[in-house]
Amino acid sequence: MKFPEPRYIDTNGIKMAVYEDGPKDGVPVLLSHGWPELAYSWRHQIPALAKAGFRVIAPDQRGYGNTGGPKGEENVPLYDIEHLTGDLTGLLDALEIDKAVYCGHDWGGMVVWQSALMHPDRVAGVIGVNTPFLPRSPVDPIMAMRMMFGEDMYIVYFQKFGVAEQKVGADTKRTLNFLYRRSGITMQEWEKLPSSDKNLAFIKALDTPESEWRGKPLLNEEELAYYTAAFEKSGWEGGINWYRNFTRNWERSAGLVQKVTAPALMISAADDVVLSPAMTEGMEQYVPDLEKHIIADCGHWTQAEKPEELNRLMIDWLKRRFG
Rank of each mutant, 00 (worst) to 15 (best):
118 M>A: 06
174 R>T: 07
110 M>V: 10
223 E>V: 12
191 E>W: 07
185 I>H: 07
109 G>S: 03
160 K>C: 12
120 P>V: 04
169 G>C: 10
193 L>F: 06
121 D>F: 14
146 R>I: 11
226 Y>R: 09
97 I>C: 13
233 K>H: 12
208 T>L: 15
140 D>R: 06
172 T>G: 07
165 E>G: 09
169 G>R: 07
203 I>W: 11
179 L>G: 08
207 D>H: 11
160 K>E: 14
122 R>M: 10
217 P>E: 00
228 T>S: 06
137 S>G: 01
149 F>H: 06
110 M>L: 13
105 H>E: 12
118 M>R: 10
136 R>Y: 04
115 S>T: 01
178 F>N: 14
106 D>R: 02
102 Y>G: 00
203 I>N: 09
233 K>Q: 11
136 R>P: 06
199 N>F: 15
194 P>F: 00
200 L>N: 14
225 A>L: 07
139 V>L: 12
142 I>G: 05
117 L>Y: 08
191 E>N: 11
127 I>T: 00
151 E>Y: 09
129 V>K: 04
131 T>L: 07
152 D>Q: 04
167 K>Q: 14
219 L>R: 08
206 L>W: 00
113 W>M: 03
150 G>L: 02
212 E>P: 06
129 V>R: 00
223 E>P: 05
120 P>L: 09
149 F>Y: 02
215 G>H: 03
138 P>C: 06
116 A>K: 06
173 K>H: 11
133 F>A: 05
228 T>M: 03
183 S>Y: 01
92 L>S: 09
158 F>Y: 11
221 E>A: 00
210 E>F: 04
172 T>Y: 13
210 E>Y: 03
191 E>S: 14
188 Q>K: 12
155 I>H: 12
155 I>R: 10
215 G>I: 03
134 L>G: 11
148 M>G: 15
222 E>H: 02
208 T>R: 15
108 G>Q: 00
139 V>C: 04
198 K>R: 06
